[in-house]
Amino acid sequence: MHAAQREIRAAHTATTVTVYQAYSPEIGLPAAREGRFPAAWKRDRMTWIKPSFLWMMYRCGWAAKEGQQTVLAVEISREGFEWALRRACLSSYVPGVHTDQASWQRELRRSPTRVQWDPERDLRLRPLPYRSLQLGLTGEAARRYADEWTLTVRDVTPLAHEIHALVRAGDLDTARSLLPRERPYPAGDELLGALRP
């Protein structure tokens, strides 16, 4: 695959990146209200952040899946996002990228972040021929995400429902016009070189 097929596409500014997560209302609503994750949010567990809105919709079923009824747009610092990328390893063993399975497992144990490339989705949530980043955060990375990198938290569940209703009605043009404006994130080989199988 060409590198462009494994490219980070995200809503971003000069200083921030928007990622998405879905939670139960018990976690998601207080997070959106307070602009930060509540104490009930487990900082010692692996958490996955997704820069792709439509991949998030695929994962949470347009905010209909149990425990994923509240979709959050979390604006984090680019500094934090790139810290995570620099310390990441692939979530699965890839011959040719890793010397052998044992060296990959050692890297996995040391890394506070994981990268997974999953097929991007279209408005009907069908897979596209290129992939989107998922970034798994654990340990120090998860704590930094919740307590240092997070700048704003917005509840975008109403937007998810509105776009989904338009898709169901067959009005794809209007649905597309409401999508967050995601574009390639400027992450060259320095950040992604070892993370593109």
Rank of each mutant, 00 (worst) to 15 (best):
A4W: 06
Q5F: 03
R9P: 01
A10G: 07
A10W: 08
T15G: 08
T15M: 01
Y20H: 13
A22E: 14
A22K: 02
E26V: 11
L29I: 14
P30A: 08
A32H: 12
R36P: 00
R36M: 10
A39V: 14
A39S: 09
W41D: 02
R43D: 06
D44M: 05
D44H: 05
D44Q: 10
R45S: 14
M46N: 14
W48M: 11
I49V: 14
L54P: 12
K65H: 11
G67A: 09
G67T: 06
T70K: 06
V71F: 03
V74I: 15
I76C: 04
E79F: 07
E79Y: 07
E82W: 00
L85E: 07
R86S: 10
V97M: 12
Q101H: 14
Q101M: 12
A102K: 05
S103W: 09
W104E: 08
W104R: 02
L108Q: 12
L108T: 00
R109G: 11
P112S: 07
P112C: 11
T113Q: 00
W117V: 05
W117Y: 13
R121A: 09
L123R: 00
L125C: 10
R126M: 11
L135P: 00
L135T: 03
G136F: 01
L137E: 02
T138G: 12
E140R: 08
Y145Q: 13
D147M: 09
W149L: 02
W149Y: 01
L151E: 04
D155E: 00
D155L: 05
V156L: 03
T157F: 03
T157E: 01
L159V: 11
L159I: 04
A160N: 03
A160M: 00
H164V: 04
A165M: 07
A165L: 08
L166S: 11
V167I: 02
G170W: 07
G170I: 06
D171E: 05
D171I: 03
D171R: 13
T174L: 13
R176A: 15
L178K: 15
L179M: 03
E182Q: 11
R183F: 02
P184E: 00
A187S: 09
G188F: 07
E190C: 06
L191N: 01
L192E: 05
A194N: 05
R196Y: 09
P197F: 13
